[in-house]
Amino acid sequence: MSDFILRTNKLSKKYKSDFAIENINVTIKRGEIYGFIGQNGAGKSTMLRLVTGLTFPTSGSIELFGNNNPKELIDEQKRTGAIIEQPALFPNMTAYENLEVHRLQKGIPGKECIINTLELVGLRDTGKKKAKNFSLGMKQRLGLGIALLSDPEFLILDEPTNGLDPMGIVELRELIKVLNREKGLTVLISSHMLSELYQLANKFGIIHRGKLLEELTGKELDEKCRQHLRIKVDDPTKGATILEKQLSTTDFEVMPDGTIKLFNFLDDVFTVSRTLTSNGLVIEHLSQNGDSLENYFSKLIGGVDIV
């Protein structure tokens, strides 16, 4: 069994003369919640449509559950559930009937899964109400129900919080976390709301104008965004010892280039510099660093646009 749920290799999609996505290499391991971040039109949906087989790549390849044979990828789709853009529902059918169509399509035996799924997404009591009369939030939840009906191993969600109220967003987030924790569900979730994804995902892919700018774990993102004092002294080892003994802090890191990242004393830079210099160290650089998530993203895409 492959540890990788999804791997793409130089995946590109061209519409006429423009690349919607270009040379995308994404790796998602089993059990990860992968947040795909990008502005509107960055290429997130195109990427997800390629992965789900709704559209075909111009070049590059997709490996799903360790299988990259294009003819066999369709079988691997049975192990995935997805909502791409808006949830696709039959407006004249009830929530139960919508799920029944998908149960039949996927060949899932027994109708218990429908009741269980309706319960899971909180639509058990919708009775004979047709999907066309659902609120946007209910439609999103029904879409999620369709994606979860077959108990997939890999869930692909394209902007799933669109139309959800704040409580709905919290509920969805908690539901995904529970499924990930208890069932080991791997999730690929796209959004242009960085703060929203930050609370859910543990790995991030940042896409801009069709190109994957960076792929990083939650920890790496935290480190990049966490406010800190960047200190460069002539003797980093001694500096670290002084911080530990005289300032009684261990909340710092010595980077490979000898720079020390100190995550506290942000409001007391003077104490830090005085302590270091009084111990005979030469401070070559001392500055406050770290961004908000939004600023980090904005800097990465090379503009002032905030997602």
Binding site: T52, G53, L54, I74, D75, E76, Q77, K78, R79, T80, A82, I84, A88, H102, Q105, K106, I146
Partner: peptide, 8 residues
Amino acid sequence: KNQMISGN
């Protein structure tokens, strides 16, 4: 869309 990604 749902039918196309159903694995059939």
